Deep mutational scan, measured.
Amino acid sequence: LVRYRTISKIPQITLNFVDLKGDPFLASPTSDREIIAPKIKERTHNVTEKVTQVLSLGADVLPEYKLQAPRIHRWTILHYSPFKAVWDWLILLLVIYTAVFTPYSAAFLLKETEEGPPATECGYACQPLAVVDLIVDIMFIVDILINFRTTYVNANEEVVSHPGRIAVHYFKGWFLIDMVAAIPFDLLIFGSGSEELIGLLKTARLLRLVRVARKLDRYSEYGAAVLFLLMCTFALIAHWLACIWYAIGNMEQPHMDSRIGWLHNLGDQIGKPYNSSGLGGPSIKDKYVTALYFTFSSLTSVGFGNVSPNTNSEKIFSICVMLIGSLMYASIFGNVSAIIQRLYSGTARYHTQMLRVREFIRFHQIPNPLRQRLEEYFQHAWSYTNGIDMNAVLKGFPECLQADICLHLNRSLLQHCKPFRGATKGCLRALAMKFKTTHAPPGDTLVHAGDLLTALYFISRGSIEILRGDVVVAILGKNDIFGEPLNLYARPGKSNGDVRALTYCDLHKIHR
Score class of each variant (00 low, 15 high):
G261C: 01
H162M: 09
G271T: 01
Y246I: 13
V447N: 03
E157G: 11
F185S: 04
A247L: 05
D257P: 14
G422I: 06
E121I: 11
P282Y: 01
K395I: 07
K66D: 04
N154V: 11
H162Y: 05
I189F: 14
L413S: 01
L401R: 02
G249W: 03
N156H: 10
D88S: 01
W89E: 01
Q341N: 04
E157I: 12
L206W: 01
Y219F: 14
A242R: 01
G191S: 09
K66V: 09
L227H: 01
S105K: 15
F304G: 01
A423P: 02
A449W: 01
S276E: 09
I141Q: 01
V210G: 11
L134D: 03
K172F: 09
I332Q: 03
C232K: 01
M390T: 04
L197H: 04
K418Q: 06
H439F: 12
H351D: 03
L209D: 01
W87P: 01
N312A: 01
V86W: 06
L413D: 01
Y104F: 14
A432T: 04
S345G: 05
L200K: 03
V289W: 01
T233L: 14
H169M: 06
G223N: 04
L355V: 10
E314H: 01
F101C: 07
A119R: 15
R214L: 01
A235P: 01
S105A: 08
H239N: 01
R371K: 14
A99Q: 01
P419T: 09
E376W: 09
G116N: 03
K202R: 04
L401G: 02
T98V: 10
V212M: 06
S81E: 06
L176F: 14
R362G: 03
H162F: 08
R211S: 01
E314I: 01
V357K: 03
D137F: 01
Y170A: 01
H351K: 06
P128D: 01
I77F: 07
K434C: 05
V180I: 11
S283G: 01
C243F: 01
D257T: 08
L201P: 03
D88R: 01
V142Q: 03
N275S: 09
L216T: 04
H364W: 05
S298N: 01
W75I: 05
T352A: 09
Y274N: 01
Q269K: 01
A291W: 01
L327Q: 02
G281R: 01
S192M: 08
N368F: 05
D137K: 11
L92K: 03
G281M: 01
G426D: 04
Q372K: 07
M251E: 03
T438R: 08
D137R: 10
S298E: 01
L370I: 03
G193S: 10
H408L: 03
G164P: 09
L188H: 14
A381C: 04
H408Q: 01
M139N: 01
N310M: 01
R421A: 09
I237V: 11
P184Q: 03
I244P: 01
L109K: 05
S192K: 11
R165D: 11
C417P: 03
L431D: 01
C406S: 08
F294H: 01
A224D: 10
S412I: 15
N335P: 13
V447Q: 01
R218N: 04
G191R: 13
G278A: 03
R211H: 01
G325F: 01
V336F: 08
I339H: 03
V212K: 03
A291T: 01
C232L: 08
P282E: 01
A130T: 05
R208H: 11
R208P: 03
T120Q: 07
S313K: 02
V86C: 12
G278K: 05
V357G: 01
A247C: 01
I166A: 03
F140V: 01
L409K: 03
C417T: 12
A69R: 14
Y104W: 01
H416G: 11
S326V: 07
D178P: 01
I183F: 09
L94T: 14
F175Y: 01
N368E: 08
E314F: 01
W262L: 01
V357H: 01
K285F: 09
A432C: 12
W174T: 04
L188V: 13
D186F: 12
E221R: 13
H264I: 01
R421T: 13
F234L: 13
D444Y: 09
K436N: 10
H364I: 01
M390G: 05
A106P: 01
T438G: 04
N275L: 05
E376H: 15
I366D: 01
N250K: 14
A338S: 06
L200S: 04
D404H: 01
H439Q: 15
L323R: 01
T102R: 01
K215E: 04
L229E: 01
F228M: 13
N250E: 15
N386K: 04
T120M: 11
W174E: 01
Y274D: 03
D133V: 01
N154H: 14
G325R: 01
T203R: 01
P117A: 13
S337L: 03
M328D: 01
K436V: 09
A392M: 08
G116K: 09
L109D: 09
R208S: 13
H79W: 01
I340S: 03
E112K: 11
E359T: 03
R74M: 05
Q379S: 10
A125R: 14
M139S: 07
T438P: 01
E376Q: 11
A403T: 05
L109G: 13
G193E: 08
T424R: 08
P103N: 01
I366L: 05
T113V: 10
Y97P: 01
P70F: 10
G305I: 01
R71V: 14
T295M: 15
Y219M: 10
F296W: 07
V302C: 14
S313A: 15
A125Q: 07
R259M: 03
T120R: 15
L78K: 14
A432P: 02
G199I: 06
I248E: 01
K202I: 01
P282L: 01
R71T: 10
P442F: 01
K272W: 01
Q269W: 01
T437D: 07
W245K: 01
H169Y: 10
A338G: 03
C406W: 03
A440G: 03
T120W: 01
G278W: 01
V212T: 06
R342Y: 13
R214A: 11
N310S: 05
Y222T: 05
N250M: 13
T120C: 01
L78D: 05
A440F: 10
L409Q: 09
R421G: 09
F185Q: 03
A69W: 12
L93N: 01
T352D: 11
R429S: 04
K395C: 08
S297T: 11
Q341K: 07
A403P: 02
D143P: 01
G303S: 01
A338H: 15
R205A: 04
T102F: 01
L431C: 01
G249M: 01
F83V: 08
T120F: 04
L299M: 08
